[in-house]
């Protein structure tokens, strides 16, 4: 909630209630023909949630009508100077989740850490960051794949190590 020129910017405050409202209506649509056991709790909770969000919307609308608030999105995007970095981090994270299926755990984690840390450090200390990302992703490989044997997607790196191990190197 930010204040600009005496007015509160409450646009961001709507995101959660609107998401809740839309989700609840969607949820209702999936149970409309279900047996009562599927409906009873959801209709009860959903009805209260809808009432709460509507109350919130009405209250906010009144505040806007009186000129005490506006629909600015400052609360979500502030500080604006950091917006690009934050969106960049989000994009790198999303890319990480998409690429891990092909690149395998270790390589992709290395790439993610390298890219994210360089972004947040504005490109400085690249050498240190490379070594650090390498150490952390290798540590992750040792813990998660070698020791705990979790089924992370295997990529070129994991295949290589496995082949080397099988060859007795």
């Amino acid at each position: 909630m930010n204040e600009t020129g005496g007015k509160k910017s409450i646009g961001g405050d709507f995101v959660i209630p609107v998401a809740a409202l839309v989700f609840t209506l969607y949820y209702f649509s999936t149970i409309i023909e279900s047996p009562w056991t599927a409906q009873v709790a959801a209709f009860f909770i959903g009805a209260i949630l809808i009432a709460l969000t509507l109350l919130f919307l009405v209250k906010s609308a009144i505040a806007i009508g009186r000129g005490q608030a506006d629909l600015g999105m400052n609360a979500v995007i502030a500080p604006t100077g950091l917006l690009a970095t934050r969106l960049g981090l989000l994009a790198i994270t999303a890319a990480y989740l998409v690429l891990i299926e092909w690149g395998g755990f270790t390589l992709t984690t290395f790439g993610f850490l390298l890219a994210a840390m360089l972004l947040l450090n504005r490109g400085q200390r690249a050498g240190f960051i490379t070594l650090f990302a390498l150490a952390v992703s290798l540590g992750g490989y040792l813990i998660f794949i070698l020791a705990f044997e979790t089924r992370f997607p295997r990529g070129p790196f994991e295949e290589l190590i496995q082949a080397a191990m099988q060859a007795g190197i």
Partner: peptide
């Protein structure tokens, strides 16, 4: 109001 919306959203 916000607290209750958050809680009920969680329940949903």
């Amino acid at each position: 109001l916000k607290g209750l919306i958050a809680g009920f959203f969680g329940l949903m």
